[in-house]
């Protein structure tokens, strides 16, 4: 039964989702919201499992004095700081009139969010620029015909996207300028390739979903 019950739930939920797409009539039109609510509720309970796992692993690292135990200590301090700040702000907000949220501007939680989380998050995102440069360098090395084609296409797309491109090719008729080359490459070969991938993905999704609904694909339920 441990395996059959999840399979039955999967089948019923899968069929219900298919039906709600085609049937606008009540109760089918409510299915999506109902399932979303259920998923959010289950996810909210599951977050504790995640938090406990994180704490357990970090405490284990500290107790064993593992190689990177100071990082684990930093994680625990950060985790507890934001949780405590949020909790204090939350309780304070409940008692104030009108009630305020721990996320409101000016709260301790907001201070952490604005001054610690946001800069760190932005820093990680900014690193992407350097990785794009290093990855492009490798990808654009003309090792074979396909890579050479990629290099040439990338050259025209990149130069066509900046004012310098049209400045350099300004003496050509308008339809021959680099920006037009870039537009053509993006609108036709790129779009055609993207759509081919999208069609494959859509059909793959249908096939996988069907395998899951019918219980043929069940490795994610094993245990």
């Amino acid at each position: 039964m441990k395996r059959e019950i999840p399979l039955i739930i999967t089948f019923v939920a899968g069929v219900a989702f298919v039906l709600q797409y085609f049937i606008p009539h009540y109760p089918f039109n409510r299915f999506e919201n109902i399932f979303s609510d259920w998923f959010a509720i289950v996810g909210a309970f599951a977050i504790w499992l995640g938090a406990l796992s994180l704490m357990k692993l970090c405490l284990l690292n500290i107790s064993k004095k593992s190689h990177d135990w100071p990082i684990s200590l930093l994680i625990i301090i950060s985790f507890l700081s934001i949780v405590i700040a949020g909790a204090i702000d939350g309780f304070h907000g409940l008692n104030s009139v009108p009630a305020t949220s721990f996320r409101d501007p000016g709260t301790n939680f907001d201070w952490f969010y604005q001054n610690v989380y946001t800069p760190l998050s932005s820093t990680m995102f900014a690193i992407l620029a350097f990785f794009v440069a290093s990855a492009s360098y490798r990808a654009f090395r003309a090792r074979n015909t396909a890579a050479t084609l990629l290099l040439v296409s990338a050259f025209f797309v990149m130069i066509g996207r900046v004012p310098l491109g049209d400045y350099l090719s300004g003496w050509l008729p308008e339809r021959m300028q680099f920006s037009q080359w870039a537009n053509w490459l993006m609108a036709f070969p790129n779009t055609a390739g993207q759509r081919a991938v999208m069609i494959g993905i859509a059909l793959g999704t249908v096939s996988t979903s069907l395998r899951i609904i019918l219980g043929i694909e069940r490795s994610h339920l094993e245990g």
Binding site: F131, A135, S136, R138, A139, V197, M198, G200, I201, L203, G204, T205, S207, T208, R211, E217, S219
Partner: peptide
């Protein structure tokens, strides 16, 4: 594709299990 040795493109990810 640029950074990895092998890439499963789109539908190949879904076909992998089978």
């Amino acid at each position: 594709v640029a950074a990895c040795d092998y890439t499963l493109i789109g539908e190949e990810l879904f076909a992998a299990s089978a």
